[in-house]
Design a protein around this nucleic acid. Sequence first.
DNA 1: CAAATAAGGATAACATTTATCCTTAATCCG
DNA 2: CGGATTAAGGATAAATGTTATCCTTATTTG
Lengths: 162, 162
Amino acid sequence: MILKSQVEWALHCCAILSGLPEGRYLSTKALAELHGLPKEYLSKALQSLSQAGLVLTTLGPSGGYRLAKTPNELTFLEIVEAVEGGGRTFVCNNIRANNPCRPKGYCESSPCAIARIMWEADEAWRAKLRSVTLADLGEILAQDIPPDIWKGTFEWVLKRAG
Amino acid sequence: MILKSQVEWALHCCAILSGLPEGRYLSTKALAELHGLPKEYLSKALQSLSQAGLVLTTLGPSGGYRLAKTPNELTFLEIVEAVEGGGRTFVCNNIRANNPCRPKGYCESSPCAIARIMWEADEAWRAKLRSVTLADLGEILAQDIPPDIWKGTFEWVLKRAG
DNA sequence: CAAATAAGGATAACATTTATCCTTAATCCG
DNA sequence: CGGATTAAGGATAAATGTTATCCTTATTTG
């Protein structure tokens, strides 16, 4: 059970977009170059973000993407679910219903106990991702990344942002 | 990102095995019939449990599986990881290293901040699963399942247990 | 009008999951 | 001892999902 690599790509792209000045846009091409990713396929991840309403787009030269909200309003969970989908990791096929000892037409009152427990674990995962915003990430990155690399990247981005 | 259905199968099988009297074994065939599952493929899931040391096996007629520990020593996490593997759901491909603004040969000091956050969410998921034992599940099932079905299933199992 | 862009459809390569079949070695029972 | 039953595991195939590429369309900029 592994998340799509598009999740990783979307998170990194949002991290870059969160440093973009107000009203400017960054293209798929620039984001793909910056991360060494296939432009066409990265585009699908960005489209998912767009469909989820997390980013805004413009067309034409100088077009591209920018965040639809401020970084402290955008959570990891929103980004992950935009790309990966909001479904649960545990799918209950209700195999208890195949138990030959059950009376015919027997109807369960509640979801399977095993599924309920697995879903609680899913919810713990989601709760953690919901608690972290892009702004939080920005603070961590500011400490992680050497200032000169951070600055160089920022200038590289600004040069390409429409 | 969906867990293998074998995870569901393994959990249900362990739930049944946890009700088995001391020293008796239940075969793949019986477990497959009880849950309406393909015997040969279910066998792979049970082999995973065996390799992880969660169940004990015997060969020959009257052979099969029983738990290697008491139900209150066996956690959901152990069962899930035996089948699904213990890896993380988020794989970091370190795409930040592709950033053209980095000096050549630059070496990161710590894992990517995005990966660290995603891994914390994974750990929250695992922590929840680690906190629930088969004994806990048994208590919930005892309340969920009507006594006559529970009793009928138990007798069905005992009739087939070696 | 020409170039650049996002959006999205079609398709293919690749990996994983799901399943089936077969062989081997061990165990039980008559 | 011999036949039946079982777990273990290898080989293979079908089904599904992920990753990737290509192409068309509509929009925007200059």
